[in-house]
Write a protein that binds this DNA or RNA. Sequence first.
DNA 1: CAGCATAAAGACAGAATGTCTATATTTCAA
DNA 2: TTGAAATATAGACATTCTGTCTTTATGCTG
Lengths: 133, 133
Amino acid sequence: MARKPQDVTDAELAVLQALWDGGTASARELTLRLYRRLTESNLATVQKLLKRLEDKDCISRNREAWPHVFTAAVGREELIGRRLQTTADALCEGALSPLLTHLVKTRRLSPQDRQALRDLLDELEDEGGRKDS
Amino acid sequence: MARKPQDVTDAELAVLQALWDGGTASARELTLRLYRRLTESNLATVQKLLKRLEDKDCISRNREAWPHVFTAAVGREELIGRRLQTTADALCEGALSPLLTHLVKTRRLSPQDRQALRDLLDELEDEGGRKDS
DNA sequence: CAGCATAAAGACAGAATGTCTATATTTCAA
DNA sequence: TTGAAATATAGACATTCTGTCTTTATGCTG
C-alpha cells in the first residue's frame, strides 16, 4: 500500500505561493516567477502542476482568457487549517484543542505574545460570544 | 524526485501509539495490539517498523532482554511539535505564531475553551514570566 | 493558411512505504 | 549437547507518489 496522497505537494505549493504572492497570472508568468529561466519543459511542468491543483480545487482557471489565467482558490489560511487538522487527526483523534494547548505551553511566548493572545480572546468574547452576528 | 521522507510514517505511528497506550512491550505483544491475528508476516512487519523507528530514534530497544523490549523514546507531544513545525516551515516561513492565531481565530472556541486558555496564560505569567526558575 | 504559443495527455525515473520471504541468531527443553 | 521453536535481521518487492520531460492537440494571429 502507499500513504494517502498529500493534499498539496511541495511543487504544487510553490505554485500556490507564487499565486498568493504575485497574484493572478498566466502559466508563462508563473513559470517566470518560479524558475529564473523559462524553458519549454519548465513551462510544461508548471502546466502540469496547475492541472493537478485544478483537479484538487486549489486554483481556478479562466478558460475564456487566452492564455488561460489562474487564480488561487484556496488561501494560505485554508491550507494551514487543513494541515493542522491532518496533524490533529493523526495525533489527537481529530481534536484541535491539544494543538492549541501545545503551542501555548511549548512555545516560549513573550509577554507581548501573551498580551496579543489575550486581546484576541477579548475580541472573540465580544463578537463570537453571541450566537448570531 | 520524490517527497522528503516523512519523519514518522502512518504504520510507524500506529506502532508508537500502541507503545504509548499500552506501554513497553515486546514485538510479539505489539503485534497482538495492532493486528488481531498474529501471523509470521505480521510479526515481521512490526519488527521492520520497530527497526525503522529505532533508526529514527523514536523508540529504544532493550537488547539485554529476550525477546527485546521496546519503549517509546518520543512522546505524543514531541511529535505534535514536530508536525506543527513542519506546517509552519511550509506555510509560515517557520513561524509558529500564525498557527496559534489561526487556531484561536478559526476554531469555534467555547467560552469554556477561552477561559481555559486564559487560565493557561495566567499560569505562564507566573512561572514563565520570570527569566529564572 | 502558416507558424507559433499554449494546452492537454502521457511517459518516466527515483523514492517512499507497507508487506512479505528468507536467513541468521538466541533460548531452552529433551 | 542438540535440535526445535521463537525471535531478530536482512533483503526483496509491488504499489504509489511526485516532479519532470516529451509528445500531441488546440487555438490564436498575422
